[in-house]
Nucleic acid binder design. Sequence first.
RNA 1: GGGCUCGUGGCUUAGCCAGGAUAUAGCGCUGGCCUUCUAAGCCAGACGCCCCGGGUUCGAAUCCCGGCGGGCCCGCCA
Length: 586
Amino acid sequence: MSIMDDFEKEVSAKVSEALERMGAADVAVQTEEASVGGADVAVPCFFMAKALRRSPKDIAEELASAIRPSGLIGSVAAANGFLNFVVDPVALTRATLDDICSKGSSYGHMPSSGIRVNVEHTSTNPTGPIHVGRARNPIIGDTLARCLKRCGHKVTTEYYVNDVGKQVVVLTWGVENATPEEVAAEVEEHARTIGRNEKERDKTDHRLVANYRVANKRMEAEPEVKEEITSMLRGFEAGDRTVIDTVRHTAEIMLDGLRETLSAINVELDRYTWESGYIADGSARNVVERLKASKYAGTTDDGACFVELKDFGVQGKNTKFTFTRSDGTTLYTTRDLAYHLDKFTRADRLIDVLGEDQKLGSKQLCCALEILGCDRMPEPLFYAFVSLPEGKMSTRKGVVVYLDDLIDEAVARAYAEISKRRSDISEERKMEIARIIGIGAIRYNIVRVQPEKQLVFKWEDALNFDGNSGPYLQYVHARACSMLRRAGDFERDTDPSKLTGEYEIKLVKVLSRYESVLKAAGNDKKVHLMPAYGHDLASAFNQFYAGESILNAKESRNAKLTLVECAKTVLADVLDCLGMGAPEEM
RNA sequence: GGGCUCGUGGCUUAGCCAGGAUAUAGCGCUGGCCUUCUAAGCCAGACGCCCCGGGUUCGAAUCCCGGCGGGCCCGCCA
């Protein structure tokens, strides 16, 4: 419970008391964040007008004079039918800074809830490198997981590896059978027609794409190859260990590359779960049996099984949810059901970070889970795909920007910026800082926009280091660090009478909001609030910083430095929550 | 065709779920600020039929209905 929550409660209580005295005890008081400058909490008086038979303006004025500032309430005033309350800056500053000083980097974090939350994210097919069209997934998922941890939950992140199906089998055939010469020729051909030279990047996920294309081409041209692949697919479905293991091995190699990319943007997952496992352990089969036994089950003329979902709010022609082929084999969604049932044995709350193309599938999955008697539902978090100005990303057409390319470009840009301003540090140090800044810019830029909003990728935006950007926040952190370094030892001082400047109070107010932002970003899955908060905090710091000299302050020096230290502490945690580094210099 | 979703200054974007005052912030633009703590910064300014039309309400960017425009989905694929 933060001090601003207490303040709001106090306001609510005071207004209720005053209303009671005015003879309107049963009128419920609503509070809201004041939208007018200067005030912190507002109480609209319009809905009181009927009960009191007076104009909102009159009511607000009478209430304002009836309420005496006390406790956390610094002042109250009436304006346009609103009551505007200002928090007492003395109490606020003292409480907030003491809290940060005692808790340090865990300031704003909530106590353990005992709730296990599983966040499934990324889960891209292991058939090629991650491109920026899908880059929202790991970044949103990882940020959400970090927020949820701060909300006191026991969080596990998980990648569901789709090592079942035609795509991976074709890739596997290519990895096993394409000759080095064929692959080299394919790379040449691709460079000539599409204009991308894949030899430049020696990373398994990029390298294997040529094998995949060779396999596809030969499958189309040569009936024997097609037969080989079909036979592998059949073997897979029948549970042939050698086929399954070979495919899994290919997926592992591909994953090595993907993990390298994810790690570069500070995304590490706790667990990788293999789709093939649900065939092997019989749980997918179990789902089939249970669905068949339900009253919603049906069979097509060919023998494929489905459940009828029209009673579950599914519309139009999507009501039949097929869960076996006519030959009895399971489908992706069937395995996904087994996967979700498994996840529910390991966690209390499931969150799936999914592309918006999965919306219908996710809805159907939930219906099927209900039929299976599942009392909890996964919570999907959808994001719209990132497209290019030329249109939708397509690896085949070469209309694509790989995440690896974006990372390289961002780091190179950051390096150039550092080189412009710093000649006093080593090349290694410059490179180290460039990575922190480049990666920070990418993560910030992607997570700052609401997930459901479609995003068109533009290099100029992705590489923006000014204003509402990751480096803006990092710059403030570096500034604060630099100042604290110069200051040397100082005695902490949280005396509010020494921090009475407009910008000092503004900064303290931003700091006091941290917990409520974490709550909304984590529990309500509104991750984009996090970068916005970071920007508010950095901006408030810059105003404070620009306004007056801190190191040369006289009696308030220690108090100002304490405020700098507190801001730095919170900002460092915000940066960590966003998966961004907090550089001590830049 | 049906379903879902998004539409806010030139561009990007917050607010919308839980209706309330002068609509948030950034880029870009105009002007000012580095002999003092990192100018990747700060200050000031211009720029808005909140897609359109109805409705509900004392009050609508926000809720409801109908359009228009963009995106996604509608496989015994994954």
